[in-house]
Design a protein around this nucleic acid. Structure first.
Length: 575
RNA sequence: CGGGGCGUAGCGCAGACGGCUUAGCGCGCCUGCCUUGGGAGCAGGAGGUCGCUGGUUCAAGUCCAGUCGCCCCGACCA
């Protein structure tokens, strides 16, 4: 490819809305343009990189016996109503209607469609297991798209689904996919970790995430340096101590706390520690309100609550809803005197005495409230978000925290979808049984951004060889110089003959602009044909190398040195 | 969806209190000359219904209302 013919509009300045480095660099380097909020167009450079990522994913999936298919993006609402996810997934789905007013969604994920396609054809255990996958666009109407490709409303994903007649068979596919994902991350050149994760709205009982390290990531990682445990903070169980109070129960008292709403404000106003307050949060689910109680200095893990009450549609209640139902602003909600309300508490609440809670009356809180005497709890569970320095659930050592980007997610779904969709096969004993299913996602477009987050410097992107749009760029310093021009052309042809993907910068531009573009786009290797040619040399420089090496132009060394440099190239290393 | 903010040339921005006449600046773009090792220089030039609709006014990018779009913060997940 010749740069003069390449559509790669590079920019000196980043657009003002680019918040994160991957967004700014992919934009400036001419990979992407924004079409709408959270919707991006992929230009030729991006298309090349995305294709390479897709091919790596494809090769690894094929290698474990998964078969590629393409399922429709448009899916009928009925399919989603069968499994109840039209409501559960609800607001996050892009919905549309056809001319007959029939409802559809642009697929955010494809469990229903895959199960539907398979259920009438796979009837015997002899036909199992089957593992299918596809690579294509997905649509999620995010509350707030942001961070460019990292949180888009339209994105490219590989999603796979496996169907089994036994847990052991599912375990095998799950293991295989985990290996495949490790290969993918390794071949792309990402630094990552595999963590235990929450399964969220996808459902199921076991789940792991592949998370690449990045400070802008939205996944909170918890890791144990002693035993190697790692987890998403949505999943990690709290295995620490609960502080137990032996204080004598004092008299319940309603106190005036004007305009004092948050835990911090209450603590300050009443001169108590946040750990002496019980935070009361109201959620709305399909059976109405649920009140959750947790010690004031701890964050509540909504995933844990959803699992505990077995309602994935659970969400934090709007202040308006709360006021309409209870006549109290959210800052003053509390468990004392509530009736006909499902109350769930964190284990820690059991051991607290003389706590501060909302007064269920505007501008009032109770002090010295005590469990059993003043309020009751229907059930207890672990509701805490585990934080750095909490003990490791495995070995008890303090956990450390870091941020990451979720790229891959594997789930053991079990029979959630096959049961509700009546997807049955016949086993050896002639019994009809629901498929045991697994589900495996990998974010392809997100991977491109995640790589940029890990591999860049002040000049631009530093692509790993495996997914760089081109492996080599040849920079012709002066297009007026016929010797330079001719040699650049020759190297260009020689490298292409060896199957190397090379871009020839044959533009009539000042050398500065060519160098800047090359660094910005981030090709692994640059061959400069310039002034050194008068002494019979060209220069060879990897993207992360400070100083170029000079190569004699005669004797075919250029091609061999190029191949050598590409093979040794490690984008993570600064040279 | 709630809160905050922004919409002026392809990009980044300036145009306070209502009036500098013809709405500017930098980058980019076009033409010519010159230049060719880190986003060169000189000269000339093109490009705007000031997001849209309505209102106030002798006069509106500028004030008001509505609307659309976008961005940021807020419990989202590939």
């Amino acid at each position: 490819m010749r740069f003069s013919q390449l559509y790669a509009p590079t920019l000196k300045e980043a657009p003002s809305d680019a918040e994160v480095i991957s967004h700014a660099l992919l934009y400036r380097a001419g990979f992407i343009r924004k079409t709408a909020a959270g919707v991006y167009s992929y230009l030729p450079l991006a298309k090349r990189t995305l294709s390479k990522i897709e091919n790596i994913v494809r090769e690894e999936m094929n290698a474990i016996g998964a078969q590629e298919v393409t399922m429709p993006i448009i899916q009928p609402a009925e399919l989603w109503k069968i499994t109840g996810r039209w409501e559960d997934y609800g607001p996050e789905m892009m919905k549309l209607k056809d001319r007959h007013d029939r409802e559809f969604t642009l697929g955010p994920t494809h469990e229903e469609v895959f199960t539907q396609v398979v259920k009438d054809e796979l009837r015997s255990y002899k036909q199992l297991p089957v593992f299918l996958y596809q690579i294509g666009p997905k649509y999620r109407d995010e509350i707030r798209p942001r961070f460019g490709l990292l949180r888009a409303r339209e994105f490219i994903m590989k999603d796979g689904y496996s169907f089994h007649d036994s847990q052991e068979s599912l375990d095998e596919a799950y293991e295989a996919c985990t290996r495949a994902y490790s290969n993918i991350a390794r071949r792309i050149g990402l630094h990552y970790v595999i963590t235990e994760a929450a399964s969220g709205a996808i459902g199921g009982n076991e789940s792991h995430e592949f998370v690449s390290f990045a400070p802008v990531g939205e996944t909170n990682l918890l890791r144990c340096d002693r035993c190697g445990y790692s987890s998403n903070d949505e999943q990690a169980p709290y295995k620490g101590e609960y502080s137990k109070s032996d204080d004598v129960e004092k008299a319940l008292t309603l106190v005036h706390t004007p305009n004092v709403k948050t835990v911090e404000q209450v603590a300050q106003f009443l001169n108590v520690k946040p750990s002496q307050i019980v935070k009361s949060l109201l959620f709305v689910g399909r059976n109405g309100f649920v009140m959750a109680l947790i010690q004031g200095d701890r964050e509540l893990n909504m995933e844990k609550l959803k699992v505990h009450v077995n309602d994935q549609s659970l969400r934090l209640a709007e202040p308006k809803e709360v006021f309409e139902a209870f006549g109290v602003p959210i800052g003053f909600i509390g468990p004392v005197g509530v009736k006909d309300l499902h109350v769930v508490a964190d284990h820690g609440v059991k051991y607290m005495k003389n706590v501060v809670v909302g007064g269920m009356k505007e501008d009032h809180h109770y002090i010295n409230a005590n469990l059993g005497r003043d309020f009751t709890v229907d059930s207890y569970t672990d509701l805490r978000v585990v934080q750095p320095n909490d003990p490791c659930p495995n070995c008890g050592a303090p956990l450390s925290g870091s941020k990451g980007i979720e790229l891959g997610h594997v789930f053991k779904l079990g029979t959630k979808y096959s049961k509700s969709m009546n997807a049955l096969y016949m086993d050896q004993n002639g019994e009809l049984k629901p498929f045991i299913m697994g589900c495996y996602g990998w974010g392809v477009s997100r991977t491109m951004a995640a790589v940029v987050e890990q591999l860049h410097d002040e000049d631009g992107i530093i692509w790993p060889k495996s997914i760089s749009p081109f492996e080599v760029i040849i920079t012709t310093v002066s297009m007026q110089d016929q010797n330079q021009k001719a040699l650049a052309e020759k190297i260009y042809r020689d490298l292409m003959e060896k199957g190397i993907e090379v871009l020839l910068d044959d533009r009539e531009l000042s050398p500065g602009m060519k160098f800047k573009d090359a660094d910005l786009i981030g090709f692994p290797l640059r061959i400069t044909v310039g002034r050194a040619l008068t002494e019979g040399f060209v220069e060879l420089k990897t993207r992360n190398q400070a100083k170029p090496q000079k190569i004699k132009t005669d004797g075919g060394a250029v091609v061999s040195k190029t191949i050598e440099a590409l093979n040794e190239y490690d984008p993570h290393r600064k040279v």
